[in-house]
Structures are given as structure tokens and as C-alpha cells.
Nucleic acid binder design. Structure first.
Lengths: 211, 211
DNA sequence: GTCTATAAATTGATAGAC
DNA sequence: GTCTATCAATTTATAGAC
């Protein structure tokens, strides 16, 4: 992408430093709980310096969220509707999230805050959920059409459910990490895939012993 | 329950007023975003007056959460492990939640905030989730033992999953209420119950047409 | 581009009168 | 039990020097 006029590369690097620090702060304390002074301390700059680059605190948050979305797109190919590959892609995403608890915290806290209609990131999260659920639903539809889904399951229900399940499990995981978040997701996919589908994604278990 | 010494009934009534107002404020803005002045304005009292009753803001939050738990216990009999009755009890709880979005917002926002180890309600939510997941897991186990669960499903996975699903769906619902949260939950139970179990809980659909 | 200085508001909390 | 008065701290944001 072309660099906007007037932004030297050193300026851009500075903005990246601030974004990284703001990301850290908002992850830990949320938007309302995080302050510009915390960010400035990490960067080694004054609060006025930060506002010079981002104008307002709300603006900074939005750019932090956009910054993270770029990262996420690189990590997994979940953005496309892709049948069975969706399953492994989604598991990869969870696996990545486990390695960066800060990101999980950021989304967990800020998405909850942003349910308030006057929150600066309200529209961002509305749009994001609509997009993500669209992708998951399309993938479920594709899995269904390919014949890898068990009988009598509704792809539309499942598209919403997988997003909800992941969000909910992440809250639980932030409060108590003494259980395997990947296993929980695998169990979900095992519930909805045919044996054939489970085999193709490496999730098949011949006989699961239930206590 | 016996009334604590020194608390006149009029004092107790005042505390209830404050709790109700604080509940409202924390529901809308979370703990960090909500202020004592907002609470005081609703009650028609000064901030000093509030702190006279609750000593600190953190203390007020804890009592608000406990206050709500009492309410919830009255609403549904979900607290006991009770086989198939769990399904209808849980659906009743969701139905109740839909009628009081403020409660949903309170738990959604504060539980997310409270994932931070130094949050005043951190331990409260750790304990609460442990308890709730314990109840749901026991209920799933009971459903399994009674023969109403489909083959190859793990009650332990499902106990955690139903809590996560509900939490996640509630976030989605706060952002966009143009879909049926009850239907989504029914679909989940339909996925895990035998036809016999679905019939007994009124969830059976003879032939579901998948688009 | 970053700083100092400062504004203007809000925060949670305390002391003490009534 | 509630008030006034006050505290010290912190907040976001602006103005202007360098």
C-alpha cells in the first residue's frame, strides 16, 4: 500500500510502537480501565505525544483493533469459506490464541464493553461479528453440502454456535487455565462431523469411553 | 434469616435502593466505567452517603453480584442436578435473561473485566464458574445415565460447552437482537439429546429441513 | 515530532458537623 | 444516617515553545 503523504517511515514506526503499547494496555485493563499515561510510560513518550499521533483515545482503540485484525488474517486462512479445512483452520486459530493471552483478553473485555451503544468500538464489533458469523456459517454450509455433516444439523445454527462457544470458552480459560481449550473445540467438531469428516480432519476416535 | 444487630429495617431498605441503583450503573458501564456519582444521582443521596453503607466501591460491586445471585436462584431450579428437567430449567433461565438485558450486560461486562487477577470480583467469578460448570456437568451426566443422551458424547465436555455457548450467545445478542436466542439453545439440546429425550422436553422435530 | 504546562473535569475516599 | 467540605489523584485534551 502507498504511504500517505507527509508520513515519514520513522513516524510510521513510532505509531507502531504506540499501537503495540496501547494493545498491551487495553488487553490488560480494557478500554475504560486503560489510560493514556500507562501507554505513554511503556513507549517512553508523553501523553501529548500520543495524542499528536492519534488525536483521541477512542481513535487509538479503533486503530489497535484494526492493527490486530491484520495480524489475525496472517495467522489463519479462516477468512475464506472452505469446508473441512475450516475445522483445522479454526483449531489453528485457537491454538494461536492460547499463545497470546493478551489478544484474548483484549477481545474478551473490549467486546463486552462495546455492547453499550455509545461505546467507541460498538459499530466495529457489530460489523465484526456479522462478518465472522457469516464466514463460519458459510463454512458450515459447505461442510454440510460436502456430506461431512451429521444428519439433522442446521449450518446456520452451527455458524453462530461455534463463534459463541469459542468466545465463552475463552472467558472460562482466562479465569482458569487448567484445562485444554483445544480438546473442547475438537469435541465440538466431533459432535457435528460424520465419522468420515472426523477421520479426514484427524479427529476420529474409534471408541470414546464415557465415565 | 435473622437481621444483623443495629440494622434497622429502614437502613436495610436504603441499602436495597443503593444496590438496585448500583446494579443499574454497573450493568450499563461495567465496574470500571461506572462511578459512585452515577449511583448517588439515581438514589438521591451523596457519594459519601453510599460509602457510609458500603465502605468501598469494590465492596459495593460484590454485594451487587450477591444480590443478583439471590434473584437468580429464585427464578430457576437450575441449581440442582436434575436430568432432563435441567433442559427446561436452562431454557427458562435464558428466557428470563432476555426479559432483563441489564443483568445480562452486568455479567457479560464484569465477568470479562474480572478475568484480570487484581480485579475485586476475580475470585467471585472463579468460584461462580466452578460452581455453575459443576452443576451443568452433573446434569449432563445424569441425562447420560438416564439414557437420554446421544451416543459418544462426553458429559464433561458438554457441561463446559453449554455454559460457554450461553455466555457467547449473550454477547452476540447484546450486539444484535434480531435473532432468537431461545431457538439457538434449543438447537443445542436437540444436538445432544436422543429423540426420546427431545420428545420428553418438547424439542422434537420430526423432519428438519436444512437449506 | 515531542515536549512542558496547564486546563477542566472526574474519580474514590475521609473528616467531622448535624 | 446523611450531609458539606475537602482531599489527593487521575483522567483526556489543548496550547504553544522548541
Amino acid at each position: 500500500m502507498a504511504r500517505p503523504k507527509g508520513d515519514s517511515s520513522v513516524t510510521e514506526a513510532r505509531k507502531q510502537d504506540i499501537l503495540k503499547a496501547a494493545f498491551e494496555v487495553f488487553s490488560k485493563n480494557g478500554y475504560r480501565g486503560g489510560s493514556l499515561s500507562q501507554v505513554s510510560e511503556i513507549v517512553g513518550i508523553t501523553e501529548a505525544g500520543i495524542l499528536h499521533h492519534f488525536k483521541t483515545k477512542a481513535n487509538l482503540l479503533i486503530e489497535v483493533l484494526a492493527y490486530r485484525d491484520e495480524l489475525a488474517s496472517e495467522i489463519s486462512g479462516v477468512t475464506e469459506s472452505s469446508g473441512l479445512e475450516f475445522v483445522t483452520g479454526w483449531l489453528n486459530l485457537i491454538d494461536y490464541n492460547i499463545s497470546v493471552p493478551g489478544i484474548v483478553e483484549l477481545y474478551c473485555i473490549v467486546s463486552a464493553e462495546a455492547t453499550a451503544a455509545d461505546h467507541p468500538a460498538h459499530k466495529y464489533f457489530q460489523d465484526r461479528y456479522e462478518y465472522v458469523i457469516g464466514v463460519t456459517t458459510a463454512s458450515m454450509q459447505r461442510i454440510h453440502d460436502d456430506g461431512y455433516m451429521r444428519k439433522n444439523l442446521d449450518p446456520v445454527d452451527l455458524g453462530r454456535a461455534i463463534v459463541a462457544l469459542s468466545d465463552g470458552l475463552q472467558v472460562q480459560w482466562l479465569l482458569d487455565r487448567k484445562w485444554d481449550m483445544i480438546d473442547e473445540h475438537k469435541a465440538f467438531f466431533r459432535r457435528i462431523l460424520t465419522d468420515e469428516g472426523a477421520k479426514l480432519t484427524g479427529l476420529y476416535i474409534k471408541e470414546k469411553v464415557i465415565a
